[in-house]
Design a protein around this nucleic acid. Structure first.
Lengths: 206, 206
DNA sequence: GTCTATAGCTGGATAGAC
DNA sequence: GTCTATCCAGCTATAGAC
């Protein structure tokens, strides 16, 4: 009997507007801009609403993190279950918004301990899912796990992708095209050309 | 006739103590903990000293960033000019303190524009130096630049290293050992076993 | 160079009216 | 659910004594 995932208050339009406002501020000006007053102003609402819906600012941050994480997890799952899981995963790691939010939360975690454990928990879950699916996929492609353990391929793609995204925010792009080309060459060797919007398998031949 | 690099005020003990205090706070509690009051308290000094030495908080942050960047640059140069430049570079990317500070400054840059251009400028300089040296080195090792352009090797090592460091701060280490093993296996193929504290070439048979 | 004092602002949180 | 009013804390920055 845990807390129900969705209470009445979770679905309120006001609540969603506050989360949206907080996310906007975080992306545009960093987490330090996310104050109850500024969130209220951006959502055209009274600052006191933040406390009514989330209690404390920590509460707001945690709910915002969870909302984003759940969305990313759905995106990840869809990517991994598609016909080209490697391509899907690689593209999922490019999500600019999600990556920028993650960076802010990582910085936040330094002085908000509740955020820290939230991030750690979700990260474990993400990694496990990636590993479960891609381990099977890579073995299927004939990649020798002694030479390239699946987890290293995941860490490489995730790490490089995030690094490039961060650099992009500073208008640095030296070598980015070459880096992407090298990675995609390897993906292509395993999984063929990227097929955009591939038809679901079930619909083939009706 | 630009501003001289080192004025009298630059070498003051007080100034150094303030920078040290700011750095400590930043690492322990994140950039948001770096206020003139807290820096003053940590350095056992009056908060007004911060404004005397740095003018504004932005001034403090910029000087702190530069001090760290200069130190890292010296470390990088030493690593690249050593007998095993690839090993040296790889190890330089592991600097926990430097990486954590960089993360904080990246987050800061989101709402402090002066920081943003400071980071971009130094990053370009770092990348250029890495590229100049490692391009020659890798060609010397016989790495085909058509298949593995030097810049991709740099980006891979830097990106992966930072990713692992971030995860470590959240007590995540799944696959880290395997990832490091794979990278070091490749470095070893090019540059042999790591020789710790190698004697300078000049002293051999000297 | 160092300190006190203080102006002026922004923020978190709550009580209580409606 | 929403809003007003308010308390208290912490912050930057400056003026001016020593």
């Amino acid at each position: 009997m845990r807390t129900p995932r969705r209470s009445a208050v979770d679905e309120s339009r006001t609540r969603t507007a506050l989360l949206d406002a907080a996310q906007g501020l975080m992306l545009e000006e960093g987490y330090a801009a996310v104050s109850s007053r500024r969130v209220g102003a951006k959502a055209d609402m009274n600052p006191a609403m933040v406390h009514y819906y989330f209690g404390t600012m920590d509460g707001l941050f945690i709910e915002l993190f969870r909302r984003g994480a759940e969305r990313s997890f759905e995106q990840l799952t869809r990517a991994l279950l598609s016909a080209q899981p490697l391509w899907g995963f690689w593209e999922a790691t490019h999500d600019q918004t999600s990556s920028a939010m993650t960076m802010e939360f990582i910085a936040l975690a330094n002085h908000r301990k509740a955020i820290r454990s939230e991030i750690a928990g979700y990260s474990r879950r993400f990694r496990q899912t990636q590993l479960d699916v891609l381990s099977r996929v890579l073995v299927g492609y004939g990649v020798d796990p002694q030479v390239w353990p699946p987890v290293t391929i995941i860490l490489m793609m995730a790490g490089i992708s995030r690094f490039l995204l961060i650099e992009q925010e500073f208008e640095l792009d030296t070598g980015h095209a070459e880096m992407i080309a090298v990675i995609e060459r390897h993906i292509r060797e395993l999984e063929g050309d990227r097929v955009l919007d591939p038809a679901p398998l079930a619909s083939r031949d009706g």
